[in-house]
Nucleic acid binder design. Structure first.
Lengths: 216, 216
DNA sequence: TCTGACATACGAACCAGTTGGTATGTTAAA
DNA sequence: TTTAACATACCAACTGGTTCGTATGTCAGA
């Protein structure tokens, strides 16, 4: 009879993923409130009944989409620190390189699901705020780990707090994407990232060597 | 008959302002899409007919609200540079002081209308994106002016570009408010601002004086 | 009497979410 | 191996409520 191997008509895992993918794509562009469940279903090629079978409500798929984005990001960034033999300062340089690479994708606006949902929903959807907060903490923890290691290796006497610097960099990254989008000038993001990397490198310069700021 | 001096039943200017005020309050909390015209009217104590008499549509009052916020902000920041006798570096210190003060208001979430509308609408409402872009440019121009003056006075040889640094600071400020909100930790914003000010002061240190970084 | 400011009423479109049903897959007894 | 009972995955149609926007009316002041 008809083959059953390639395209099983039922595939809950795939349906779920398709719904999440559609949600990410749409909300990344329009935000949460402006994205309707009908629209998500149409984009995913799934009916509304099916939608409410997989997700309790709109907020629930919103949370799943933020989680998905977090995992996607972590996988992307992991390349920076996966080689644990690498000098942590070079890991940080890779980290910045990954972010710059993210701004350079063709025909893709440089924006972040976590940043968008945080901005729009922090004050009205506590569960969403918490999920976004968690994802930002993850980024910060990874960044702080590299900063602490780099500090231990290169400038143990330096006075900066790795976690505070990590939050600073996270804020700069989020704000840069926001401003880059509003100005339609992704170059601003890259310029900001370069300034920040230079600053971090400055923080990590050995304190006993009276090195002037930077070579122009 | 009834007196007409104190409370004229009709006052288009005041009605307009009430509508804009209500819009700012509501959208600052809920964002654009989640704020309905009915809600705005209720908050302002104005009927819907009146609303559509004063504003063509929802987007139009959104733009007006962003403009209002821009003027409000500029008035707030102006205190930093209004004394043009003051050392521009001290003007910058005041500038940061104003931002820190903004985070310290009681029972008020530290957030920005321009940042919220930029994040939510940049990719779908071109007119709104442009208005937000304009407001961000204003902030940046004011900031860059102070930076350029401070550079001319304190470190004319320094290699930084005042405008690039101003965009950097604008991005950091926007991102800090975003992260501070998502983490419900306004302290992060203040920490970021302090780090940024120290960095700016570092940039402005005379290149010939071998001054060590900071007194811890 | 004429105009600009405001009010009332309403409609077409759209929203999130529900319902009752069907197709498909699984399990286990006959 | 067949079959019958059951569970899961999915679907079309629908509901009650809300949305922005409009059409029409009223009223005060110039």
């Amino acid at each position: 009879m008809s083959e059953t191997s390639t395209k099983p008509r039922r595939n809950p895992a795939e349906t779920r993923e398709r719904l999440i993918g559609a949600t990410v794509r749409l909300m990344l562009r329009q935000g949460y409130a402006a994205t309707s469940v009908d629209e998500i279903c149409a984009e995913a090629g799934v009916t509304k009944g099916s939608f409410f079978h997989h997700f309790e409500n709109k907020e629930s798929i919103g949370r799943a989409a933020v989680e998905w984005w977090g995992a996607f990001g972590t996988a992307l960034y992991a390349e920076a620190w996966e080689d644990d033999e690498l000098d942590p300062l070079d890991q940080l340089r890779r980290f910045f390189g990954i972010m710059i690479g993210f701004t350079e994708r063709e025909d893709q606006v440089c924006t972040c699901m976590v940043g968008m949902m945080s901005q729009e929903l922090s004050q009205t959807h506590p569960a969403m705020r918490e999920e976004c907060g968690r994802q930002l903490q993850l980024w910060t923890a990874n960044c702080a780990r590299m900063l602490a290691a780099a500090k231990a290796r290169h400038a143990p006497e330096a006075g900066f707090d790795p976690e505070a610097v990590a939050w600073y960099l996270n804020s700069l990254w989020q704000g840069s994407m926001l401003v880059g989008k509003a100005e339609d000038r992704p170059g601003i993001i890259r310029s900001n990232l370069r300034l920040a990397l230079a600053w971090v490198e400055g923080l990590l310069q050995k304190t006993d060597s009276p090195n002037p700021s930077q070579p122009s």
